[in-house]
């Protein structure tokens, strides 16, 4: 079976000083077009099954490319029909891709996920909250008479308080960090205990200063929060291009 399809990893500058040497990049090839370079591996049509191994390999290759120069990471599992499909994407989106590469040059991404400690959450928003305790008491006293609407009100009350607390955290922490970063995004809240799910684009030479700012803001709050501060990562959250035409997947 001929390998006409292309599994895409990243797009960078054609003159970006990237070299495809080393074990990790074995089998990775390049298509050049108008000063841009698309990094790919040839695959047979329909051959590429998505798996844990494939995902780890994708991350490793993108990470290796990104460690050499600014690249736009392509989503895991993107397969294009043939070389002409890749060239068409580079051709139609050249301006947007170059602008994004300029913006990402010399930068790295860090992630910040913050969670309330479970006991803190229960104390702050659960039965120990006077308003919540009062409603729960009412629900119990009412026996089978309309406990459901009361419990719904309990849920709404907790939800509102959690939302307000998240807004306060955003104001006191996220906005402060965003102001010293090149760019910042707030991603979806994934669990009820999650306070903040953010990513920041920072200049590589500012990494230490940014780490210090994270510590300054969050170390005094470690009794209340569990903090997961990770990176450096390729800038997945800051290279989301709306490419035309959309990649055709197989």
């Amino acid at each position: 079976m001929t390998k006409n399809a292309l599994y895409l990893y990243a797009i960078g500058r054609g003159d970006g000083g990237l070299t495809l040497s080393g074990e990790t990049l074995r089998g990775v090839d390049t298509i050049f077009y108008d000063g841009l370079a698309a990094f790919f591996s040839p695959v047979s049509d329909g051959e590429h099954m998505l798996s844990r191994e494939a995902m780890m390999s994708h991350q490793k290759i993108v990470g290796t490319l990104w460690s050499q120069a600014a690249v736009i990471p392509i989503s895991f599992g993107t397969v294009l029909r043939d070389r002409s499909a890749v060239i068409k994407i580079l051709q139609m989106n050249s301006k947007q891709i170059k602008a994004t590469l300029n913006r990402l040059a010399g930068c790295m991404e860090v992630g910040l996920k913050v969670f309330w400690k479970k006991d803190v959450f229960a104390a702050r928003f659960g039965k120990q909250d006077p308003g919540v305790a009062e409603l729960i008491k009412k629900a119990r006293e009412s026996g089978n008479e309309q406990p459901y609407p009361l419990m719904t009100r309990v849920g709404e009350m907790v939800e509102n308080k959690v939302r307000q607390a998240r807004s306060t955290f955003e104001r006191e922490v996220h906005h402060v960090l965003a102001a010293v970063a090149e760019d910042a995004v707030l991603n979806d809240i994934l669990t009820i205990h999650m306070v903040c799910n953010a990513a920041y684009l920072i200049r590589k030479e500012e990494e230490q200063a940014f780490d210090n700012e994270v510590s300054r803001l969050l170390e005094p709050r470690t009794d209340e929060f569990d903090v997961r501060y990770t990176g450096p990562w390729p800038p997945y959250n800051f290279a989301r291009l709306q490419l035309e035409p959309p990649p055709e997947r197989r």
């Binding site: 099954m49 844990r52 599992g77 997947r249």
Partner: peptide
């Protein structure tokens, strides 16, 4: 992963 592969196959 299995569902993602099925989704891709169905889409193709």
């Amino acid at each position: 992963f299995e569902r993602l592969n099925q989704a891709r196959t169905a889409c193709a």
